[in-house]
Lab assay of single mutants.
Amino acid sequence: PEDLERKVRELQKNGVSPEQIEKILRRDGVDEREVQELVKKVS
């Protein structure tokens, strides 16, 4: 979803590592495939 992507970009802009971003997304209940997609987009 659009807002998730925005969140991921925000986190990355704040210097959060892709690994941390993955953890955060998983903790928020984002589905694994979605997590991978989002992280791939920003890394």
Rank of each mutant, 00 (worst) to 15 (best):
P1V: 13
P1I: 13
E2G: 13
D3F: 12
D3L: 11
D3H: 10
L4E: 01
R6A: 12
R6Q: 11
R6F: 08
K7T: 06
K7Q: 06
V8G: 01
V8Q: 00
V8Y: 06
V8R: 02
R9G: 03
R9M: 03
E10A: 08
E10N: 10
L11R: 01
L11V: 00
L11H: 02
Q12M: 15
N14L: 14
N14T: 09
N14K: 13
G15S: 03
V16E: 05
S17T: 13
S17W: 03
S17A: 09
P18I: 15
P18C: 11
P18L: 15
E19H: 08
Q20I: 10
I21L: 05
I21A: 02
I21M: 05
K23E: 15
K23R: 11
K23T: 11
K23N: 14
I24S: 03
L25T: 02
L25M: 05
R26D: 04
R26P: 03
R26E: 07
R26F: 07
R27C: 15
R27L: 11
R27V: 10
D28W: 15
D28R: 08
D28G: 08
G29P: 00
G29T: 01
V30D: 02
D31M: 06
D31R: 04
D31K: 05
E32L: 08
E32V: 07
R33Q: 10
E34Y: 14
E34F: 14
V35Y: 06
V35A: 12
V35N: 02
V35W: 08
Q36R: 11
Q36L: 06
Q36D: 09
E37K: 03
E37Q: 08
E37R: 10
E37C: 07
L38Q: 06
L38F: 01
V39E: 03
V39N: 03
V39I: 15
V39Q: 04
V39F: 00
K40V: 07
K40G: 11
K41T: 08
K41A: 12
K41L: 15
V42S: 06
V42K: 02
V42I: 15
V42P: 03
V42C: 08
V42R: 02
S43V: 13
S43T: 13
S43I: 15
S43E: 11
